[in-house]
Design a protein around this nucleic acid. Structure first.
Lengths: 236, 236
DNA sequence: CCTACCATTAAACGGTTGTTTCAATCGGGC
DNA sequence: GCCCGATTGAAACAACCGTTTAATGGTAGG
């Protein structure tokens, strides 16, 4: 058995998480990880089998509690007698992200950049495993949202769920870029502020009447519609 | 001068774009690119100086027309006498993405995955260059949106613009994951359908009244609010 | 014809990658 | 005390990386 605190395994996980979040898996070498963790190089292969094994463990350690919290939150809402509101369902989905980011023991702000990176980690087996982690959660929330929004076609609800994931992941993960563009720095402890700002946005978005999926790509309801620039070379 | 069609330079750019979009820059070797382009390995360094030079050229080739189209679309809206609507402004921002994805000569569906990858490319100089490309566009749209939405605080408009970028980038780039989760395959030619579905969602989102940025993280307007699970270990 | 000059080629460079090997060390149970 | 499995350590492995060099082919201009 490994000791409970600061074992080699834990130090490797912590260092790998930090570096994966900062520069991505592909750009992080095992030597950089073991140097930061002050651990022998071979320890990674000994404890995790391979670099891929380490990657999966790093992500699993954070994704599993996150998605479990989302599921238990939804369980709790549905076990009540009162029908949950749209806002409650969406908050149940989004809040665990803020909780992770706020708790240093659960990864702190670093874990958000890690999740942001994950979408770009193109290893095929990783992607399927990653999608498997999400499928159950998204399916259950899809059902719950359809129940709360009976007037929105289920197909549209599914898409809007994807929009939510994108809107939630991107600004939280790409803080660097957000800061550069907005000029305003974000306190790492205030990730939950992002969630609070995002919540009314997506609540309204989900409630919006679903536009007909264009019978014709160009034609629309409005009578006259000027054709928009489709990024041609130059045209002055 | 290089020949106009299928020059070595063009073949390298096309192959690099394809592979960058599929597996990311870091995981794509110059040898894989030159093999796919059926070109000598040294040709990359000859024509682009270095791998970084190639990367920047691949992205610049797509980002510049995209953001130029967004700016000219906004110019056109603001040059009219009638005040533009929120929907028009947002469509002016989003449509060029669909146009790129629909036109094979402009990169086709591949370019979307490329843009999705870009957020994860953590090279510092690349990030600053990338943010510079976006800053002007986001600043101008931020001003235009503030004009259309005078009741929303500018700070919230800025955040919602970030949410829009996230919601636009993620599902379009992560088609692989989206398909796995939803089970429904997306016709590459139908990226514009994503935009059409996203438009009513974000229009409603932008119009939503801005929630007060929580005076207290836990307290909220509603009288009684059950504390949500913050992803603890396990608790049955 | 010869000479620049641009483009392409094959080959090699030094460095880094993930992984493996094998010896050294540690910590309890018979 | 001794042994055995678990862990750590230093070193080397082959493979791959981006880049450079030197030689080549092709072609337009004097």
């Amino acid at each position: 058995m490994t000791s409970l605190l600061d074992s080699t395994k834990d130090r490797i996980l912590a260092a790998a998480e930090e570096l994966f979040a900062r520069t991505g898996v592909a750009r992080t070498s095992l030597r950089a990880i073991t140097a930061l963790a002050r651990v022998n190089l071979a320890a990674v292969n000994y404890h995790f089998g391979s670099k891929d094994g380490l990657v999966e463990e790093v992500y699993r350690r954070r994704l599993e509690p996150l998605n479990r919290a989302r599921l238990t939150n939804l369980d709790r809402l549905e076990k009540r007698r009162r029908k949950p509101t749209l806002e409650e369902v969406l908050e149940a989905f989004m809040m665990p992200v803020a909780s992770l980011a706020r708790d240093p023991a659960q990864g702190g702000p670093t874990v958000m950049r890690l999740l942001g990176q994950s979408h770009a980690e193109a290893e095929a087996p990783f992607k399927t495993w990653f999608a498997g982690q999400y499928r159950r959660v998204l399916e259950r929330y899809h059902a719950a949202l359809c129940r709360v929004l009976p007037e929105i076609p289920p197909e549209d609800v599914r898409w809007r769920l994807q929009f939510l994931v994108g809107a939630l992941t991107y600004p939280v993960a790409e803080r660097q870029l957000v800061e550069l563009v907005s000029g305003e720095a974000i306190d790492p402890a205030d990730v939950h502020l992002i969630v609070e700002r995002l919540l009314p946005f997506v609540v309204a978005g989900f409630r919006a009447p679903a536009g007909k999926p264009g019978t014709r790509p160009t034609a629309r309801r409005r009578g006259t519609r000027r054709r928009l620039n489709t990024s041609r070379k130059r045209e002055e």
